[in-house]
């Protein structure tokens, strides 16, 4: 029990150190960036007296180290400060924007994994065949064509010409303001509100952005799965298993795959973390009010409270997913037990 507590303690402290480092670096970058944060607060045309007043109010006259200390004290109280641009608490802004991103990311990752992993296995088993070639071209396209091109072409084909998906945004205009925000996840909120029409509307709106994001992620997952599987299939135990008369798929799924599953967990965790940062480009094209847009817009305006707050959140996401991956290792890898 004691060693377990100890290891938990050291893990916790390393997480805290990571986050503190992240806060320091982000804060300092924000303050040395050649953008005056006062501009976002008062606008370019404000008279000098107002500018000076705002600078003092925002504490920007203090030395950097004092500003940072104030910020840390504030953070320690669980206060991320206010956004200059939205006038909201950063925490409440994040609570609004993050679910939008998370909803997309989660569905996109599941879709990407469900399609990507089998494709990768299939390509590895049929290495060199026409199947393998087709899958590889598919992956190369997904990974190398810029997302905004995929997104715009997707909109053009499926929204404008075929008319089978709705346009950009999270919901149809008729549902605007009808669904009370409880969790921020529109699919969940619509179920809570008991509005089936709104639920399907939300699902429809997610369809295309999810497909674009998951195609992009799938390309990576498939490639990695294929590479891992090729390595595993070369093992002597595979030859032995086949020699004993087991069917090809029994060997592939029963013997080779469990060995690559552990590596795949890392790939999936990283892909998910990447998606959770918010895909600025996808969000822009699909008018999706997510974390990526929030972060970018704040950064462009030198609005540092949201930038640091969002960065810390993304830091937590990475740390959290890392921990989750570690835990899953224990489940899938007998050696770790």
């Amino acid at each position: 029990m004691i060693p377990k507590l100890k290891s938990f303690g050291s893990m916790l402290s390393s997480v805290l150190v990571t986050l503190l480092g992240l806060a320091i670096v982000t804060f300092m970058i924000g303050r040395v960036m050649p953008v005056d944060p006062v501009l976002a607060a008062v606008g370019d045309n404000a008279p000098e007296s107002v500018v000076l007043q705002a600078r003092a109010d925002m504490g920007l006259d203090d030395p950097l180290i004092v500003q940072f200390w104030h910020y840390l004290v504030q953070l320690a109280h669980g206060d991320f400060g206010r956004s200059v641009l939205t006038h909201n608490e950063v925490a409440s802004d994040i609570a609004h924007y993050f679910p939008a991103t998370m909803e997309l990311a989660t569905v996109a990752l599941i879709l990407a994994a469900v399609i990507g992993v089998p494709l990768g296995i299939w390509a590895a088993v049929r290495q060199g065949s026409i199947t393998d070639q087709v899958i590889r071209v598919l992956c190369l396209t997904g990974h190398s064509v810029p997302v905004f091109v995929l997104a715009l072409v997707g909109l053009l084909i499926f929204y404008v010409f075929l008319d089978i998906v709705p346009g950009p945004g999270r919901q149809d205009i008729i549902y605007e303001g009808m669904i009370p925000s409880v969790t921020g996840f529109l699919t969940i909120d619509t179920i809570l509100a008991g509005d089936a029409g709104a639920f399907w509307d939300a699902v429809h709106h997610m369809a295309l952005p999810v497909c674009i994001l998951s195609y992009f992620s799938m390309a990576y997952i498939t490639r990695m799965t294929r590479a891992f599987m090729l390595g595993a299939l070369k093992g002597e135990y595979i030859v032995a298993a086949r020699a004993k008369g087991l069917s090809l798929w029994a060997v592939v799924l029963g013997h080779a795959f469990p060995n690559v599953a552990v590596q795949l967990i890392t790939v999936l965790a990283l892909t998910y973390a990447g998606l959770l940062e918010g895909a600025v480009v996808t969000e822009t094209v699909f008018a999706w009010p997510g974390l990526g847009q929030y972060l970018t817009n704040s950064l462009m305006n030198g609005d540092m409270n949201p930038v640091v707050g969002t960065t810390l959140l993304i830091g937590c996401v990475y740390v959290g997913l890392n921990l989750l991956a570690d835990l899953l290792y224990r489940v899938f890898d007998p050696r770790v037990k």
Binding site: L152, L155, L156, Y159, V160, P166, G167, P168, G169, I173, E176, T284, V285, F286, A287, P289, Q293
Partner: peptide
């Protein structure tokens, strides 16, 4: 009157063409 934040002008044009 509902104003929606659509950053991308191309997206705006597509939505206008569709009547959304």
């Amino acid at each position: 009157v509902i104003l929606r934040h659509i950053i991308d002008p191309s997206t705006q044009q597509l939505m206008l063409a569709k009547g959304d």
